[in-house]
Design a protein around this nucleic acid. Structure first.
Lengths: 242, 242
DNA sequence: TAGTGGTCTAGACCACCTG
DNA sequence: AGGTGGTCTAGACCACTAG
């Protein structure tokens, strides 16, 4: 049972995506929507603030709330620069793109120092190391490395790694939700090794996204790093500032 | 007069930065802090949610709130990928870096189509076009292009462009606060023109950040695009997900 | 002046964690 | 059991925008 404000947020988001609320135009006022959904203004505002953060609406003091004009684009968006790129995939025109994965390697190794520090565990402690290639419409577009604390997940079925979402599996096994933290975006060039995995030329530009994933109880369980073809991806920074 | 929750957020942020609250350790509970500041829990929570968004603390249900372990780094952070890089500059170890600018060009031109669309004005309408180079410790690290609606600001003194913050000037002149929207991050390689401006080799990796800036009344007044040396910058994605 | 979003109060109940 | 964050109510007043 999700929180009421999340339900409301999803409901209004659906209304926006289905063009029930027209692009650029005003949506009903907080007081109206609060009455419609049978909640107080405070609760409704929480929903609307999330929608604003995620870039669906703009709130203008004294005027009202407006559906954000969405900019069309022919590249893919990594929605929030979170590690698990596959979760962030979205296309302005629906999800008809075919997404697939290939597992390059999966082994248990002693945690490298940088990984151990990120996962807040002792060096040399065992972690899963997983390298996967992601395809969109059968074109390889990114390499993703993950280091996962083996205390949290002892074994990972190969089927999970070949299919959709490792995170969903971890949520199921642990019974806890996940949170992303400290995501960092860098630019670089593809080296020979990564370029070979994607069948592209070394020296092409890359967007590198790394970050830590934690369980809702604060336990860090995953450090991931993805190497994305910069000609295929942009990152939308969902942020409203000042 | 800022909102109370913003004052409280700044106060606690200061306590974190001054290490009054130790890294990784628990800070007082919501109820305690609310009592200290003489506000209700709801108000205090607003402050803490902002601190969480900005990466200063982690909130863990049932346990408490903890100061985030900050990862040291020897590159600069573009805090939120907002257009005006100079505002986003921050170094983990204080602000002792020397920041300067050089104005390359400032002219009034008819708005190119993409700019007009972003600024929601008619094509061919006049805009300022400004290109500046930013230096850190006298090393050129980025080029920033800005297109500014001349309806909002008719004239811009050269001194403003050579000094610190154009945005601060605009806030003063218009008497309105500014908001950032729709910031997008891309990776690319420096071409000959941009590389020459920074005295680097073409083909080096770049982080490109573009976005629209609006006044608080919703009026779009600035489209900016910055080209950042990827060996000098990372972008911290202040986001807490799920 | 009427309508809008922005902030804030003083409670309440729930879900989660630890001892 | 006691403390923690997560959510929600039913009001209230303020600041801003419009006609």
């Amino acid at each position: 049972m999700a929180a009421r404000y999340i339900e409301i947020k999803n409901s209004i988001q659906k209304d926006i995506l289905s063009h029930r609320y027209q692009v650029g135009e005003k949506i009903p006022s907080e007081r109206e929507l609060a009455a419609q959904y049978g909640v107080t203004r405070v609760t409704l505002q929480k929903a609307m603030h999330v929608l604003e953060q995620e870039g669906f609406i703009e709130r203008i003091h004294g005027k009202g709330m407006f559906v954000t004009k969405v900019i069309e684009d022919n590249v893919y968006m990594l929605n929030n620069g979170t590690g698990d790129s596959i979760l962030g995939f979205s296309r302005e025109f629906g999800q008809q793109a075919k997404i697939s994965s290939r597992l390059v390697t999966h082994q248990i190794i002693p945690a490298p120092q940088t990984v151990a520090s990120q996962l807040e565990l002792d060096a040399q402690q065992d972690v899963h190391f997983i390298r996967r290639i992601r395809f969109i419409d059968d074109v390889p577009v990114l390499v993703e490395d993950s280091w996962i604390n083996s205390d949290v997940i002892a074994t990972i079925p190969q089927a999970v790694l070949e299919q959709r979402s490792l995170y969903q599996y971890i949520e199921e096994v642990t019974g806890k939700k996940i949170k992303f933290y400290n995501s960092v975006i860098e630019g670089d060039l593809f080296n020979d090794e990564l370029a070979a995995l994607l069948s592209i030329s070394p020296g092409l530009p890359m967007l590198k996204v790394s970050g830590v994933t934690k369980l809702e109880d604060g336990k860090a369980f995953n450090f991931s790093c993805s190497y994305n073809r910069a000609d295929k991806f942009k990152i939308k920074n969902s942020w409203v500032g000042k």
